[in-house]
Simulated assay, not measured.
Amino acid sequence: MPAIYDKYVDIKYINMKGFEKLNFSNATVDQIFTSSFDICVQFGIKLVIALLVLFVGKKIINYLNKIFVTLLKKKEIEPSVESFLRSLVNISLTIVLSLFVISILGVDNSSIIALLASGGVAVGFAISGTLQNFAGGVMILLFKPYRIGDYIEAQNQGGTVKEIQIFNTVLITADNKTVYIPNGGLATGVVTNLSRQENRRLEIIIGVGYGQSFDRVKLVIEKILNNEPKVLKDPEFLVALHKLNSSSVDIVIRAWTKKENYWDVYFNLNKQIYEIFSKENIDIPFPHMTVHMAKKL
């Protein structure tokens, strides 16, 4: 062996878990390499154990979540509260598992807590939005501006509430997209709940040509409304002259229907009006341009 390996290396202090029991003062390079290899092997074993615990822990968490959901269903908890509690329990168990895995790797949890405490202000700013979303979720559950299954419009989005999680509310849009909206904005912003009331009023504005008799057009529309079984008779529908527009006389139709029949009635009335107006020779104007050709001198 070359002479250089017989020389001693003077290492006064190394602050690393696993090295503190070893005396590196006047240690040879071979001894340092041997000790380092042993520590790497020990860490590798810990890493394998940690990964195994993580895998088994996730399985256990999934099993506990299923048991928890079963208990909530037996207690007939409201779906909105059930969704929130399920999300809360899942996140709490995941945090506990993460801390346990970190401790297996040899990282002292107290040092992590001390690090978080020392950077408390920065952490506070970083998670302020998350805490706001959590508080918003609690407020939503307390005041219930909407429930699972309601159709709402908020934050420039609209859809059916599928789930109220600990930080987000999940919507399914009409075209089957999944939208996640933070609870903080929903708790402090404007939310339109289209499912809260039993009945909804639809409004259709139809333009007819100048020269058409309003009374005749009104009778035709009223007949269409009376023949539509899903239009409610109480409250009564309204047919009125809405506006004298630049190229048409606008007639407004306001009718009430059950919330679940809203779009069926809306589309069917438009179809009936178009077909019957054509049969009754009621003109529906559309934008057009008249061009006058000047004669050459």
Rank of each mutant, 00 (worst) to 15 (best):
G159Q: 06
E163L: 15
V96E: 00
N109W: 15
S110G: 06
K271W: 07
M289F: 12
A117W: 13
L54Q: 10
E275A: 08
Q272P: 08
V220T: 08
F267K: 01
L238P: 09
L47I: 08
T28R: 06
M1G: 07
S110K: 15
N193K: 12
D234A: 04
Y8C: 03
Y151P: 02
S278Q: 08
Q197G: 12
Q157K: 14
I60V: 14
D38Y: 05
G44K: 12
K75A: 05
L22Y: 09
F33N: 10
A174H: 01
N15D: 06
N168W: 13
Y146C: 06
V179A: 03
T130I: 07
L269E: 06
A135W: 15
K74C: 01
Y5Q: 06
K46I: 02
T188F: 06
D150K: 04
E163R: 15
G120M: 08
R86H: 04
I253N: 11
K73N: 05
G211Y: 12
N156H: 08
R201S: 01
M1L: 04
V121Q: 12
F100G: 10
A114W: 02
G137S: 14
F33S: 12
S103H: 05
I221S: 10
K17S: 12
W263F: 05
G184K: 01
E228F: 10
Y5C: 02
N176G: 00
Q272N: 09
N26E: 09
G211A: 08
L171Q: 06
H292N: 09
K295S: 08
V239S: 11
S83V: 01
K279P: 06
M139F: 04
Q31Y: 14
M289C: 05
S195M: 09
V9P: 00
E280M: 10
I104V: 07
F84W: 03
F267G: 05
N156D: 10
F143I: 08
G149W: 12
F267A: 04
I104H: 02
V190A: 07
A122S: 13
D215Q: 02
T290G: 04
I251Y: 10
L88F: 00
F24I: 03
K233A: 06
A27V: 14
N156T: 05
K230Q: 07
N226A: 02
E82N: 09
I164Y: 00
T192S: 13
